[in-house]
Computed example of a mutant assay.
Amino acid sequence: MSDNKRLAFSIISFLHDQLSSGNLSSGAQESLEVAVQCLETAFEVSADDRSLAVPLTLPEIFADATRETSSQVNNNATVNTVGDDERAEAERLKNDGNDQMKVENYAAAVEFYSKAIAVNPQNAVYYCNRAAALSKLGNYAGAVQDCEQAIGIDPNYSKAYGRMGLALASLNKHAEAVTFYKKALELDPDNDSYKSNLKIAEDKMDAASPTAGMGGMDLAGLLSNPSFMNMASSLMTNPQVQQMMSGMMSGAYGGGAGGTGGGGGVPGGLPGAASGRDLSGLIQAGQQFAQQMQQENPELIEQLRSQIRNRLPSAGNDEQP
């Protein structure tokens, strides 16, 4: 009953506003006054009871309701106004765009797909194909927007999710790309392209994580490798390496500033000649360390090389319209 009272109160408030407008004849005013009294009696409400007031006035509520209805009608009209001739014309334009994609004329393809969208904006394929052309032109942000449009029209369009993944991966948003590749695979489980691109995106996402080393290398796994750590310990206990490190540290932080330590100073207090000798020796020790690793554990070296190769960008995983 409280909602009915609120509605009655809103009607009474509206009638009071009409009475105070001064635009009514004396007869109309008397009729509205009678109507107000009848409503107050029937619903046991008073125009002075502000606890029944709602945030919007009755005209505002009516305006919102009619605005939503008009929008719905206009949207339906847009869909229904695409006739058979327009659909056929849009398909012809799409096919022209596909022909341009085959000859790698991507800018022209974008134009044809855009014309197809203008004729029939309710076809998800046109947006998805234009996203592919935009990606070829390096406009990955535009491709993402077109994929969003395609998914909005057809939420079960697997190719739109796959192309969204490609565009996001190109923007280095690998975590988001993984989500869209997984959705594409849910809709098309046998698509090898989605599987391959998902694996690449997951690898790159792992490489960007805090546990990954420089250049995408698994530094955490490397440091947990007993063979690597044993050889590293052997290198650091080498007297020659310890002497060189000690000389570099004393040169950098000791009394060599201003070149008084001999050999010609450089900014920061590190003697130039001494630093050159120590750096050369350190490089030589590193080369010896690498040779020792190659001899004692060639499998580990090959593993490192494989990790580096796997982090290189992979081509040939794109799709065509």
Rank of each mutant, 00 (worst) to 15 (best):
S234F: 01
S234C: 00
S234A: 13
S234I: 00
S234G: 15
L235K: 02
M236S: 12
M236P: 00
M236H: 12
M236G: 07
T237R: 07
N238D: 15
N238F: 00
P239L: 06
Q240Y: 14
Q240K: 15
Q240C: 07
Q240D: 15
Q240A: 13
V241W: 02
Q242T: 12
Q242S: 13
Q242D: 06
Q243N: 15
Q243E: 15
M244S: 14
M244H: 11
M245I: 12
M245H: 09
S246C: 03
S246V: 06
G247Y: 07
G247V: 14
M248L: 15
A252Q: 12
A252Y: 08
A252P: 02
Y253R: 06
Y253T: 08
Y253G: 02
Y253N: 08
G254D: 10
G256I: 01
G256E: 02
G256K: 00
A257I: 03
G258D: 05
G259S: 08
G259C: 08
G259P: 06
T260A: 07
G261H: 02
G261V: 01
G263F: 01
G263T: 01
G263Y: 03
G265K: 02
G265D: 04
V266S: 11
P267F: 03
G268Q: 12
G269Q: 10
G269W: 10
P271Y: 07
P271A: 08
P271S: 07
P271L: 02
G272E: 03
G272A: 12
G272P: 00
A273H: 10
A273T: 12
A274F: 05
S275W: 05
S275P: 00
S275M: 14
S275L: 07
G276V: 10
R277C: 08
R277W: 06
D278I: 15
D278T: 14
D278H: 10
D278K: 00
L279D: 00
L279G: 12
L279R: 08
G281F: 09
G281E: 13
L282K: 08
L282F: 14
L282V: 15
I283L: 12
I283R: 09
Q284V: 03
Q284I: 05
Q284D: 15
G286H: 08
Q287N: 13
Q287S: 11
Q287G: 11
Q288Y: 04
F289T: 05
A290L: 09
A290M: 12
Q291F: 01
Q292F: 04
Q292G: 08
Q292I: 00
M293R: 01
Q294I: 04
Q294E: 10
Q294A: 11
Q295K: 12
E296I: 06
N297M: 02
P298D: 03
E299G: 07
I301G: 06
I301Q: 09
E302P: 00
E302S: 15
Q303W: 15
L304H: 12
L304Q: 14
L304P: 12
